[in-house]
Amino acid sequence: MQKRISIFIFLLVHIASINAQEAKMASIKEGSFVPLYGASSKKPTVVKSFFLDVYPVTNEDFLNFIKKNPSYSKSKIKGIFADKSYLAYWKNNFDFGSANPKSPVTSVSWFAAKKYCECQGKRLPTMEEWEYAAMADEKRIDARTKTEFNTYILSWYEKSKTYENTIGSTFKNYWGVYDLHGLVWEWTSDFNSIFLSGESRKDKNNDKNLFCGSASVNATDLMDYAAFMRYAFRGSLKANYSTRNLGFRCASTTKY
């Protein structure tokens, strides 16, 4: 009997510990926008309502995840899931060293980010969801045409080591989401859906040879230089890459 009770308690604690990891999410309402890339004929893309983490995943959060999934620690992760620079700034498997516990975790591969979100019962946001949520400033759903907004983002791109800053230290946007611009770049589930000419991969022949249909994908607004930078960056990534300025946050279709 006692055994039974102790197992029961163990299970309760187990469930509680899953819930303790829940990150705050903001509700993003359905809407449409014309993304910089990927729309076939400059027609608006509809983004369905979804939920997005208010903050990027932190070093502390990621450590908790690794403790439960040691196969994703820096010495154990399989080569197919992460390159050599995976968590390079961490001291060892279960210690992020002198890094700020509340700053975004970076140097994580797409596979690790994806797994983390799955373990929270969530997923990575799609590129369209991310861009849709990230075009909002404090007051407007779409601030992309505002000079101050673009200047802010571009000035961040010039700053160094913003990944050391604490989450929540940038502005809260229309949806209640922080840090989409200002700390780190973020993985999206379909980062590998970008087609840019002259991308880093060897495309010896012209693009039409390597990519079918590439001619139909064009920039809708080259003025949107900040977004262009993000797409170009994503286009240069591979799923096992990890770099110091690239983190992530999770999303969910239903309320979690």
Partner: peptide, 26 residues
């Protein structure tokens, strides 16, 4: 989702551009 992951391993990029057409790496 599995397809997206598999493509990531192969470094194949693809995107749905219309309901019937995809752009993809060869």
């Amino acid at each position: 989702e599995n397809t997206r992951e598999f493509a990531a391993v192969l470094a194949v990029n693809y995107k749905k551009i219309t309901p019937i057409d995809f752009s993809h790496s060869n």
